[in-house]
């Protein structure tokens, strides 16, 4: 009978924390894998305009173009006019084609035809610069583009 009666031990057993490092390591590896360290060093001011009618960008097939005023620390050297940045350096509208072709060549070969250009343009840039970029894209026959925006809307309620 006394088989079923619990043995009474007054103290609570200590919680076994031996597997805690394993759990933490698992989380650690997860975050290490998903972390993307910023690979573009931004040379331009990049405050995106807001929009809410948005679609998601397919990252594997996109080429990024940044545009905007040079960042504060480069303004002495490059002035305050809007500039285009591809990769890690400033690009002129006239060099845009070469830079874009180069950027496209870095994509997977099977995705190069489906390339999508992601425009990250600062909200205080003039539209003229964007139009120049678009004209070059049309010449290159890279016709899909996406204006990257921040969530929200510009209309104040």
């Amino acid at each position: 009978m006394s088989k079923f009666t619990k043995k009474k031990s007054g103290e609570l057993p200590a919680v076994n924390t031996a597997s805690l490092p394993d759990i933490v390591f698992m989380l650690l590896f997860f975050f290490m894998v998903v972390t993307v360290l910023r690979n573009n060093n931004l040379l331009v001011k990049n405050e995106l305009p807001k929009a809410d009618q948005v679609e998601k960008l397919k990252k594997d097939r996109s080429v990024y173009i940044f545009a905007g005023k040079p960042s504060a620390r480069y303004q002495d050297k490059y002035g305050k006019e809007g500039k285009i940045q591809i990769g890690d350096k400033y690009t002129d509208v006239s060099n845009l084609k070469a830079a874009l072709t180069e950027a496209r060549a870095k994509l997977l070969p099977e995705l190069q035809d489906k390339v999508m250009v992601a425009l990250k343009v600062d909200k205080e840039t003039n539209t003229g610069l964007v139009t120049d970029i678009k004209q070059e894209l049309r010449d290159l026959n890279m016709l899909k583009l996406i204006y990257i925006t921040a969530p929200g809307t510009e209309i104040e309620n």
Binding site: L57, K59, L143, I148
Partner: peptide
């Protein structure tokens, strides 16, 4: 890693340019 991670979600207005 928690602090440095920015899971980037790029969204925007997609457009097709005329050829």
């Amino acid at each position: 890693f928690l602090v440095t991670t920015t899971i980037e979600k790029d969204k925007g207005i997609a457009r097709q340019l005329p050829p």
